[in-house]
Design a protein around this nucleic acid. Structure first.
Lengths: 217, 217
DNA sequence: AAAATAGTGTCTGTGAGACAGTATCGC
DNA sequence: GCGATACTGTCTCACAGACACTATTTT
């Protein structure tokens, strides 16, 4: 059998959080040569001795490069081609990671609006756009938007997360009905004391892992 | 920057066709060493000089190894791990290809039922199962099942394709209504002359490429 | 005529949106 | 009390399934 020159294989992670009323994506400043000094998605190489698969790689990259953890890390797609990396033909297995709540400020990490991330190294802006497309398509069919919220949230918070992910406004009453029927959250016993209004019941996600529905929310 | 040992990167293709009242998948007999002599999915290495991306690789593999062509080649996912190939840590970008109509018999190509493909090399049986899951989930949201039919088909053929892909039975009247509303097919002027029954109008797909709907069919 | 498949018209139940109305807080 | 947000009850419309009915062919 002939052996072929192998393409460069990397794993990139689109790390998403929800604050300032929009989806935000984490970027790092590159300190190595292609695109040195520019903003880029966290990414890295597969460690053959540590990683059981590329999603493990994504989680390790997330932990070591951003010091964040995520309950929702999923593979998006593999993007490849001869021109996307100046070093040659490359392929990257793109993952996305949803961060619960507002991340603590961290040296080296820059959060930019996912809808308009500004100039990024490689084709990373495209990878973010593809992630948003996927989230928009899958959002209403899964509990994924719930993984962008802190451990305790109100129904209004949850609806707002769905609205921001999907880019639509949802009917409040219908949303409550469907969340109830789909049985995806558990009430907590504490009450939220929002300023100047009736407090709302707090909930947590019933399932600790992303879950697909067979109905739209 | 340190360089890391790179995993083996391949592209595998789940080639699907619809005949004998079930989804069938194409396999080849391996003639090289890991799993030599066993059945496996068509697959190969990226040719850095020819392929613009891994989907190009999948199309080239499809053409050169099975002599088939497909209007619907899509990436499924990248499957990776240290144990799936005895040669070491490997990653494969899995694609699926839908073949229109009943393929001509071909030396070297074996068609097996996708739902029960029998023993296959590597984790290829898992890759087929994952493809069926994806198709089942996406079938009702796209014109994909139409790409399993020949260039001219009846509404009953189309419904039957959806039923086999999704593993359900569909209401005939509702199906006609929705196909009409979604406007995904064009009537042809010929009439089908099925044996012993009323002939049915023939149609072709309006769109030459897979298309997602925003409604379920 | 009978059998078989193609295609249509109509009823009904379900679920989603709209929206008004009630509840509970801070001030 | 008033404003604000949380939550609920009800009406209505649209759509999907069920199913009977008609249409057109072969035998």
């Amino acid at each position: 059998m002939t052996t072929f020159p192998s393409p460069i294989l990397t794993v990139d992670v689109v790390v998403l959080a929800l604050f300032d009323d929009a989806l935000q994506v984490a970027t790092l400043t590159r300190d190595a040569d292609p695109f040195n000094g520019q903003q880029a998605l966290p990414g890295g190489y597969v460690h053959l001795d540590k990683d059981q698969n590329t999603t493990d790689t994504a989680r390790r990259v997330l932990k070591t490069k951003t010091d964040l953890t995520s309950l929702a890390v999923e593979q998006l797609a593999t993007v490849s081609g001869p021109d996307r990396d100046p070093r040659g033909w490359s392929a990257t297995v793109v993952h996305y990671a949803l961060i619960q709540g507002v991340p603590a400020p961290s040296r080296g990490l820059t959060w930019v609006p996912a809808a308009a991330p500004g100039p990024l190294a490689f084709d990373h802006a495209d990878l973010i756009a593809a992630t948003l497309d996927r989230l928009r398509a899958r959002g209403s069919w899964s509990n994924l938007p719930g993984f962008l919220l802190p451990n305790a949230f109100t129904l209004s918070d949850l609806r707002h997360s769905y609205e921001l992910v999907m880019g639509v406004t949802l009917n409040d009453a219908a949303f409550r009905r469907k969340v109830d029927e789909l049985d995806i959250i558990c009430p907590l016993e504490g009450q939220k004391s929002k300023a100047s209004a009736r407090p709302a019941q707090l909930y947590r996600l019933k399932d600790p892992k992303p879950q697909a529905f067979d109905r739209r929310i």
